[in-house]
């Protein structure tokens, strides 16, 4: 039987709704709701997490991430400039560093820094330094590539125009290249910050005191104490409290940069 295009679309949509309803009914009937509610939405367990999950864990996650991101930004900028250097050995060093730290799992970096380095060199950093360095190492490699791409995305004609007006290379970078690169870099940099926020959970490996707990470790301890999944869910929601606004910020900046780009392209076309 031949169906018109509209009828076929209608039938297909109806089929999809039918599957959806069936699925919901099946889950509703088959799932053990008491157990699930008890596990994820245990009010007592939740109450025991508050307020420390905010005042300690969330705050620490933000601190670790901020420290790591700050260090990553500094090191990343140096690496980006090295990669753009006319001195070849600088480029090689930067390339090796970036390839290495982009390629190895963050977990390995944390283990090396938390356990390997203290063993090998008989030194021990306090936790905030370790966290900053480990996250900084992981973040700097990605950040370096983001910065380099951003700087290179500024058209060469902009530099030539500035130099033609008598600006020195340094002045050109300061007044023409960096401000324009910044707009290009901001959205991907925000994404790096989101990734680093999640990577900060690896710090729990290093052995933390109560005051040093970040969200993942805090949730884990809550799980042990309450025998409930609720603390884990709460910790997860706390991550979303950070990452979702950052994601919106990133998309907002991206949209703005995109519009700028479009206008810019119209110019050079």
């Amino acid at each position: 039987m031949a169906m018109s295009r509209r009828k076929r679309a209608q039938a297909f949509r109806n089929a999809q709704y039918a599957v959806l309803v069936l699925g919901i009914v099946a889950v509703g009937v088959l799932a053990d709701w008491d157990t699930i509610l008890q596990a994820f939405f245990n009010v007592d367990a939740a109450a025991r997490q508050i307020p420390a999950i905010f005042t300690t864990a969330l705050v620490n996650t933000v601190i670790y991430t901020t420290l790591g991101f700050g260090l990553g930004l500094g090191v990343g900028l140096v690496l980006a400039l090295m990669k753009l250097s006319s001195v070849a050995p600088y480029r090689w060093i930067a390339t090796v560093y970036i390839e290495f730290f982009r390629g190895v799992p963050a977990l390995l970096v944390f283990i090396a820094l938390g356990f390997g380095v203290p063993l090998a060199f008989n030194i021990r950093f306090e936790i905030y330094s370790t966290a900053a360095i480990a996250l900084g190492l992981v973040g700097s490699a990605y950040i370096a590539e983001t910065l380099r791409a951003g700087i290179q995305a500024v058209p060469k004609g902009q530099v030539e125009a500035a130099r033609s007006l008598g600006m020195s290379p340094g002045r050109t970078n300061l007044t023409v290249v960096i401000p324009q690169a910044f707009r290009i870099i901001l959205p991907p940099l925000t994404n790096e910050l989101i990734l680093l926020t999640k990577d900060s959970s690896l710090i729990y490996l290093l052995g933390l005191t109560r005051d040093e707990y970040e969200l993942a470790k805090f949730g884990r301890e809550g799980l042990n104490a309450t025998n409930s999944l609720t603390p884990i869910l709460l910790a997860g929601l706390c991550y979303l409290l950070i990452t979702i606004p950052l994601g919106h910020l990133s998309r907002y900046l991206e949209g703005r940069a995109g519009r700028k780009q479009e206008q810019g392209l119209k110019v050079t076309a």
């Binding site: 007006l165 008598g166 020195s168 324009q180 206008q263 110019v267 050079t268």
Partner: peptide, 20 residues
Amino acid sequence: IDRARRGIGMVFQAFNLFGH
């Protein structure tokens, strides 16, 4: 060279106005 260039105006095919 920066000093020399002050006295030389350059106009490019692609304009190259500073976009920001």
